[in-house]
Amino acid sequence: MQRVNMIMAESPGLITICLLGYLLSAECTVFLDHENANKILNRPKRYNSGKLEEFVQGNLERECMEEKCSFEEAREVFENTERTTEFWKQYVDGDQCESNPCLNGGSCKDDINSYECWCPFGFEGKNCELDVTCNIKNGRCEQFCKNSADNKVVCSCTEGYRLAENQKSCEPAVPFPCGRVSVSQTSKLTRAETVFPDVDYVNSTEAETILDNITQSTQSFNDFTRVVGGEDAKPGQFPWQVVLNGKVDAFCGGSIVNEKWIVTAAHCVETGVKITVVAGEHNIEETEHTEQKRNVIRIIPHHNYNAAINKYNHDIALLELDEPLVLNSYVTPICIADKEYTNIFLKFGSGYVSGWGRVFHKGRSALVLQYLRVPLVDRATCLRSTKFTIYNNMFCAGFHEGGRDSCQGDSGGPHVTEVEGTSFLTGIISWGEECAMKGKYGIYTKVSRYVNWIKEKTKLT
């Protein structure tokens, strides 16, 4: 034993070699072989497995989906700052455009905790909710729209109204504003409101030439003092309507412009014939205590009207009353817009006519005020429907199939267009061939041609 100890002390290297040989010859039971080890760690190889990531292109799944990435790591994937920024906006807080917040056709661009709407022409605001041009839906104005110097929408209202708090709607500024039905039992019968379409306001006024200088022999019209197929109006439903009495009662109609003036057809009036105007009328054979009678003290036909040349060209006249009318729910003026808007309103496509005229061709006159909704007829169809001249200051309205029309005794009465609950004068009943005849239409004086003249002559002093 002493000898062994001496050998170990003198030859430590020998001992180490012996131990190493023993270990190498022993069977290893701690580690699995290569094949079995792979069965336990069965993990798919990654895209760049075996390579240094710093030297390969980034992978979106590896960089940002398996674990949260930084902007720089995302930049490695896209290799483009702009594309990385677009991805980053949604990656950080989701897609803010998912709810489609942009209105009126706006395009949404996502941002971090926010979004941006790219608005089409005519709109602005956070969600493109603000109209900035009158060309689109009248700028959301209830009545009139004008573009300011910086191309912003400025709404306005006709006389007797003021802008509401929203700067879009119009509200009454006087007790009985024009064009409004205020009798409670008839307010439910107000005709369907007309909503502004998209309009090209630059070209809204037709490029028409008034044929002022045409000389033409007097034409022989049949029954051209021209509501057939209409309905009984309720008291106060058309408070701007008046009836004219002269040699015979209810020979023509008219509309209240203001307390002192009536507008009617020029062919209705004769110099030297006494005319009485009755406002607030409903049943011409009954006294309903809503009527107001006034005498006409002055007749002003349009300066281009000449019955000797043509009885229905420039067929418009103004009547001055001896005493002002007292405005109330049964006696209310009709609204008159400017030339541009009167023309736009007419193009809405349908209007209402009213009167006490004959209820059928050569038949009896109506006792109760009649009204009828009539569609506008395109000019080409209008011209083809008659052998008589249709001037540019006239328009056609009615039904091709016949059966409904204005008729004798309705002449001078109103053709009105309702705009968001307020009625505007767009025409004056003038003439036609018979009444409600198939293929024939009622012919009306186009008020847009005469609004400046009306307003100039009827100013209240």
Results as ranks from 00 to 15, higher is better:
residue 278 V to Q: 05
residue 128 C to G: 03
residue 75 R to Q: 07
residue 163 L to Y: 01
residue 276 T to W: 07
residue 364 R to I: 08
residue 417 T to Y: 02
residue 95 D to R: 12
residue 259 E to W: 03
residue 330 Y to I: 04
residue 214 I to E: 14
residue 351 G to K: 02
residue 196 F to D: 12
residue 214 I to W: 07
residue 152 K to W: 07
residue 178 C to Q: 02
residue 135 N to F: 11
residue 104 N to L: 03
residue 119 C to V: 01
residue 250 A to Q: 11
residue 403 G to N: 12
residue 288 E to S: 11
residue 259 E to Y: 04
residue 93 D to G: 13
residue 274 K to N: 15
residue 78 F to S: 03
residue 323 E to M: 11
residue 91 Y to P: 04
residue 309 I to G: 08
residue 134 C to S: 03
residue 429 I to Y: 15
residue 146 K to H: 07
residue 269 V to H: 04
residue 273 V to P: 11
residue 260 K to S: 02
residue 411 S to I: 15
residue 325 L to Y: 03
residue 348 F to R: 10
residue 282 H to G: 09
residue 56 V to A: 11
residue 102 C to D: 01
residue 432 G to Q: 10
residue 138 N to D: 06
residue 155 C to V: 00
residue 78 F to E: 03
residue 313 N to P: 03
residue 415 H to G: 01
residue 180 R to K: 13
residue 404 R to G: 15
residue 260 K to H: 06
residue 360 F to K: 15
residue 365 S to V: 11
residue 180 R to Y: 06
residue 208 E to I: 15
residue 252 C to P: 01
residue 285 E to Q: 12
residue 49 S to F: 04
residue 265 A to C: 03
residue 35 E to W: 07
residue 136 I to S: 14
residue 52 L to S: 08
residue 3 R to C: 14
residue 135 N to P: 09
residue 355 G to E: 04
residue 214 I to D: 08
residue 237 Q to H: 08
residue 421 G to R: 08
residue 386 T to F: 10
residue 248 V to L: 14
residue 350 S to F: 12
residue 413 G to E: 02
residue 102 C to I: 01
residue 66 E to T: 05
residue 388 F to M: 11
residue 32 L to G: 08
residue 388 F to W: 10
residue 436 A to T: 14
residue 407 C to P: 05
residue 199 V to E: 13
residue 242 V to W: 00
residue 59 N to Q: 06
residue 238 F to A: 05
residue 94 G to N: 14
residue 113 N to T: 12
residue 82 E to A: 11
residue 18 C to H: 06
residue 368 V to L: 09
residue 75 R to K: 15
residue 324 P to F: 04
residue 161 Y to N: 00
residue 121 F to A: 10
residue 379 R to W: 09
residue 69 C to D: 00
residue 52 L to N: 11
residue 384 R to H: 10
residue 88 W to E: 03
residue 193 E to W: 10
residue 14 L to I: 13
residue 434 E to N: 15
residue 271 T to P: 14
residue 232 D to T: 14
residue 352 Y to D: 04
residue 10 E to M: 13
residue 427 G to C: 01
residue 316 I to H: 01
residue 314 H to V: 03
residue 253 G to E: 04
residue 349 G to C: 03
residue 319 L to N: 01
residue 145 C to W: 03
residue 272 G to C: 06
residue 164 A to F: 04
residue 37 A to S: 15
residue 20 L to M: 12
residue 442 G to I: 10
residue 381 T to I: 12
residue 106 G to F: 03
residue 417 T to G: 01
residue 53 E to Q: 00
residue 225 T to M: 08
residue 332 T to N: 04
residue 187 S to L: 12
residue 460 L to V: 05
residue 40 I to W: 05
residue 365 S to T: 14
residue 7 I to R: 14
residue 418 E to A: 10
